[in-house]
Design a protein around this nucleic acid. Structure first.
Lengths: 124, 124
DNA sequence: TTGACACATGCTGATATCGGCATATCTTGG
DNA sequence: CCAAGATATGCCGATATCAGCATGTGTCAA
């Protein structure tokens, strides 16, 4: 099969078709985080995140193509909002490891509760 | 600072320093998945996943550098096992969206829009 | 209609990523 | 010591990614 010769550097799946890759970028995560508090127009994101407008728009496009955000036109503004249900693949995958994550966290949690019970920590 | 001029196409954080990027690759996820059932030597992974040995080794290196796997030498074999507690950054980030993933976002959204339409100031 | 605003898109260059191949390293056995 | 097995590493080319810049598209106001 000579075809494989053509596929030399096939590399990772297109960022545009994979939630995992979409979320791999810090700036895209920051955009999603900024949308948690509610839908926002592009300009608002540009201001909040201190990124150039084309940059924000392009990241929004990627997020949109994997279905993590949805767009609504309002006048000459474009209001983006989260569509977090499409984080499900990520959530589902991560779920397979949750036992291990929770195992550690439970212990820490236990420990913290223990400390609280001990002697009135009331920090800060 | 002129340094920024050098950083033109800085792009995403080094795959080797970011769990999100480490997990963004399908083949790396497959390796992690293959290790859920228990620790395995490189050769076993090569067989199970039908990937070339150098390929597996390189992915294991990335996973190792972000702390998702740990290595143990056993004779001339190198046995890798999961260290899933380092999935925590991913888990923590995803947790912020869990409410939306688990519940029927559509219904909540409907409800919220309904409230907005009512005119009831429900904030804070 | 003209102009300004808000956003999207296309192009470019620098860098990163990935896989294959060949080879180096380390370990065991004779 | 020498050979073979198991794995890690280095180099390469092809492709993907990202940011900046300039420009296109659609919308409101006068």
């Amino acid at each position: 099969m000579l075809i494989s010769a053509y596929l030399g550097g096939m590399a990772r799946a297109a960022t545009t078709s994979d939630v995992f890759n979409a979320v791999a970028d810090l700036h895209r995560r920051r955009i999603l985080d900024a949308l948690i508090s509610g839908e926002k127009a592009v300009g608002a994101l540009v201001g909040d995140l201190a990124m150039s407008q084309p940059r924000v728009s392009k990241h929004l496009r990627v997020l949109s193509e994997v279905g993590l955000v949805r767009c609504r036109a309002e006048g000459r503004h474009r209001v983006y909002r989260l569509a977090p249900e499409n984080l499900h693949p990520l959530h589902a995958w991560l779920g397979k490891y949750e036992w291990a994550i929770n195992d550690r966290l439970d212990r820490i949690d236990d420990y913290l509760q223990h400390l609280q019970g001990q002697g009135d920590g009331s920090d800060t």
